[in-house]
Design a protein around this nucleic acid. Structure first.
Lengths: 402, 402
DNA sequence: TGAGTTTGTTTATCGGAGGCACAAAGCAAG
DNA sequence: CTTGCTTTGTGCCTCCGATAAACAAACTCA
């Protein structure tokens, strides 16, 4: 005679999709979970109970928890306040930063930004991991994994940084191995993942920011030097066969333009980054503040009334539009988001860029593609956390219960 | 009391993947099916029996059917000889063609190619559908669906041909609706699907030709005028959000090049198609034979010993290499296949193109990307059939039993 | 001929999800 | 306040696809 098993362990195959719905804010109540997953109420109930027992979400069954229409109010689903977190780390040309990020892209704690960057990747990554370890110790949260964002293409499956150009790191540095070594040295027993910062920013924006709901999201951004791109298709990063896709910096946008270190001229990289804008505006880069900040100040403070800035920004916008148009023809995205200086330029003159993209991409349809700036702060950090959360989102039971 | 159900109806969820393995030639025996699907022998047996009962495959259990190693020989799996077929149709600038294609990309019957092309899409599509209907009547095969390849981007979800430039069709012609109307008028009760010819060729090459096993397959081809591209990721066509991806013809490959109707100069479209090669070689296009045939004859007959042809082909190869390098940087494919004149040029000088692509794509890694010509005859036709077979591959029971 | 190896088949069982009936919790109209 | 309607949550049973394990079959090799 079989003893009556508890039915609470049901719903394993839909557990991941269910958690993803809560994670991305698309499942505020249990009833929504039912319809979004396409399962019965019984299954959705078991799934919600299971996620609650894993300590990931809370199911609020109190009356009045949901502002209802007709019928019995549904139980409210929320991300557990004291649930586990991911350790997120970011290294860039001007410093590094660590944070703890919970489900839903919620930044739980941040370490103060550090501006010193050593030339040795192991040293920098060790520093940022130790900063993260301190946060974990202070908060006492469980850590589900760790993610590191670097300003370089990261090759798969090796996890090496191929072009960390503005970091003075050696090309091909095994950043994932270094990251995992540092995690182990800091006593953090969790898997470490690495990714390109623009890729991770795009992932974060897709799940929690300006890219929500887009099926084919193109993200282009410039930080300090150079331009990065990313594509999120059906909720997953499109990184190509070896993690090297969306290296968009060397599209030709001005045949008579500046020479580029790649050997060509007028590449997107050298025509639309902060230095290009400063030079075009006749403004010498100063010693204080990053190139990005100086370029941003120029645009937000003196566009459009300063003729030199107006002309320079207009030129950069036109060049960027040409590059985006080429990408639109190749990738056919349904939304474009712009980060860094590109986002600032878009905000300063929302119409000009769209017009250029529409004129130079085929069948004019592209004019219908919404182009918006990124909206998340620290989106690369949140994206790094997404990398760490991914195994949990794919299979919560396997990732947490072990 | 429950009656003892026959266990032959098991294995529904793995039925599609199993058929796909047989379809792509990756499951010659039942034992391979077991390991490839990752299921038990019991399940694989039930699945094979089910596919056989659907009339799609044969399971040959005769001793000696498999050249074995040790142990009991496995049953041989083969595509059923008299199984159902897909109606494949292709329309291009020089005419149209119909064929019947079975599983495995096997061309079962072809109608003679027709060289007359009317300006009215309904007329042409009606002609090709009637040719296909005759083939169905002659062979008496069951038809699982129909696919049509057109030399134009096909917008989804509407199924309209956006730029059928060399067909004198109106832009935006609702080819899928027309195709389905013609099918119904011909008494063929099957769903009709439409796609871009290069996309479909890439799909066919991925499943049955030079692209087998590639995870990220890039295909670039030129037929008569213009250049088309396609990307197959994890076995599925990447068509972007609206079916318009991989419009690669307007990448800039020569800033001082020929003017293009898109308003720019030196586009891949006008620098690497057959007309570009003929002009560069100082050869006036003649009245007899298509542009593609004339350009091919030039290369195969007079390369490399004719200096003019050598120089012209070299220039076109270099331009093509620049375009491919840009695509490599953006898409990071693990294999590239070239069709039409591009395939001929590659075959004529296999090393030069690879060197250019390697030099102009980042981190030199791209030099490792294999570049090969397409190998299938009628690959757009076979690809059109793939479109029609897809619902069967996704869920054989639902598609066939209804 | 017999041992070892690999594959096919049979039977019992497991586990996730659906179906259905019923209970619970709100709103609206009288 | 009561009654009816609507919507949601829960318990019980069933279904279905697949696994597990034991056995039978077919071949190679010594």
């Amino acid at each position: 005679m079989t003893h009556p098993r508890t039915r609470l362990e049901r719903g394993r195959n839909v557990l991941g999709p269910a958690l993803e719905l809560v994670h991305t804010g698309r499942a505020p109540t249990r009833a929504v979970l039912t319809t979004e997953l396409g399962v019965t109420r019984a299954t959705a109930g078991a799934v919600a109970a299971e996620l609650q027992s894993l300590g990931l979400i809370t199911v609020d069954a109190r009356p009045g928890a949901v502002a209802g229409g007709q019928g019995r109010p549904s139980h409210r689903l929320a991300i557990a306040d004291e649930g586990p977190v991911a350790l997120a780390a970011q290294v860039h040309a001007d410093g590094f930063r660590a944070a703890l990020v919970g489900l839903g892209g919620r930044i739980v704690a941040t370490a103060p930004a550090c501006v010193a960057v050593a030339a040795d990747p192991a040293e920098v990554i060790g520093d940022v991991v130790r900063a993260g370890a301190r946060l974990l110790a202070e908060t006492g949260r469980r850590c589900v994994g760790a993610g590191l964002a670097v300003p370089s293409a990261v090759a798969e499956p090796d996890g090496t940084a191929l072009n960390p150009l503005h970091l003075d790191w050696p090309a091909g540095a095994p950043v994932r191995d270094i990251f995992n070594d540092c995690l182990a040295a800091a006593g953090i027993h969790a898997a470490g993942h690495c990714g390109n910062d623009v890729n991770l920013a795009a992932l974060a924006e897709h799940r929690h920011g300006a890219g929500r709901g887009a099926d084919h999201l193109l993200c282009v951004a410039t930080g300090h030097r150079g331009v990065g791109g990313a594509l999120v298709v059906d909720g997953r990063l499109h990184t190509g066969s070896a993690g090297l896709a969306l290296e968009v910096g060397h599209l030709t946008v001005d045949p008579q333009g500046r020479p580029c270190h790649c050997g060509s001229r007028g590449c997107l990289d050298v025509e639309t980054d902060p230095l290009a804008l400063l030079e075009a505006a006749g403004s010498r880069p100063g010693p204080q503040g990053s190139l990005l900040d100086q370029a941003r100040d120029l645009v937000t403070g003196r566009y459009p009334h300063d003729p030199a800035v107006r002309a320079a920004a207009g030129t950069v916008i036109d060049r960027l539009g040409l590059g985006l148009a080429a990408l639109v023809n190749i990738l056919n995205p349904d939304r474009i988001i712009l980060g860094g200086l590109h986002g600032t330029l878009l905000a300063a003159d929302p119409d000009r860029l769209g017009a250029v993209v529409g004129d130079h991409s085929l069948w004019g349809r592209s004019g219908d593609i919404p182009i918006t700036p990124c909206v998340l702060g620290h989106n690369s950090l949140v994206g790094a956390a997404e990398l760490a959360w991914q195994p949990v989102l794919d299979d919560p039971l396997a990732a947490l219960a072990g």
